[in-house]
Design a protein around this nucleic acid. Structure first.
Length: 259
DNA sequence: ATGACCCGCGCAGCGGGA
């Protein structure tokens, strides 16, 4: 079973890249983040013609997540349980979850946390707390699951090119990393680090400053596996070749292979 | 080198990204 996650930075800009990638790699599921369109504008037909049915949770201009699957699936969540919604306005489109092939697959786009001042960062931490609580619920029900997507977290200094971010950046602050570790302490496995314990395994390179040619990247896209799923782990690796394509996303797909 | 890019929105330039 092959499950991939990819922040595409606008699905309408990246639709050719996504269909090409599906044709070459044939994952069972592909989790997309930052589709940056309303649900009704999601180009589902271009994927269903390749054998992938989809569920999209979008909003205007920002955020937005979708899951493509060539396996039969049922939608189990369209937002992260336990998050208090703002009193005004719609909640942000950052979570969708399906059950497919006997596994619950959560697709998440965690807030960056660098905009909106102190409130913006507090919202990121609250989101992470809600994710941990949801993971705890799934574990209590003995559900096999994977929580994958753009976490906007560099778990350790090994996950970022030297000097690329200040210590006060929301992606690396101690409170952020502490909450990422809380997921691991529940018993979840960081798939990439289970396969490659040390060294740079980047999934993102900024468009600016020649970050990609100089390999100055970040590891911020992750797949966290529940214990029984972790026992089935064969491989977890980013597909770096995609970053060399014309007009690429700044993230590349990260592919998890299970027995 | 304090530099550099890309997206949506909407038609200039800004907020957001990480």
């Amino acid at each position: 079973m092959k499950i991939a996650t990819w922040n595409v930075n606008s699905v309408r800009q990246r639709q050719p890249h996504v269909t090409r990638w599906l044709e070459i790699n044939s994952p069972d599921l592909l989790l997309l983040q930052e589709i940056k369109c309303e649900t009704r504008a999601f180009p589902a037909e271009s994927f269903s013609s390749l054998g992938y049915e989809s569920v999209a949770v979008g909003q205007k201009a920002y955020n937005g997540v979708a899951i493509l699957s060539r396996l039969p699936f049922t939608v189990t969540q369209r937002h992260l349980p336990g998050l208090e919604l703002p009193e005004t306005g719609e909640h942000q489109a950052r979570y969708v979850e399906v059950e497919a092939g006997g596994i619950t697959v959560g697709n998440l786009y965690l807030p960056n946390g660098n905009s909106g001042g102190a409130d913006g960062y507090a919202a990121k931490l609250a989101w992470m707390d809600a994710l941990t609580a949801h993971a705890r619920t799934l574990l209590a029900a003995e559900t096999d699951f994977i929580l994958a997507g753009d976490y906007n977290v560099c778990p350790t200094d090994d996950d970022m090119a030297p000097g690329i971010m200040g210590a006060d950046d929301a992606l690396v602050r101690p409170e952020t990393r502490e909450r990422f570790r809380a997921l691991q302490w529940l018993g979840l496995t960081d798939a990439v680090r289970a396969v490659t314990p040390r060294g740079s395994v980047y999934t993102f390179w900024d468009y600016q400053a020649g970050c990609w040619p100089r390999d100055r990247g970040l590891r911020i896209d992750h797949a966290m596996l529940s214990p029984r799923v972790a026992e089935r782990l064969l491989d977890a690796v980013p597909d770096r070749a995609v970053r060399d394509e014309v007009q690429p996303s700044d993230h590349v797909p990260m592919v998890v292979t299970l027995r």
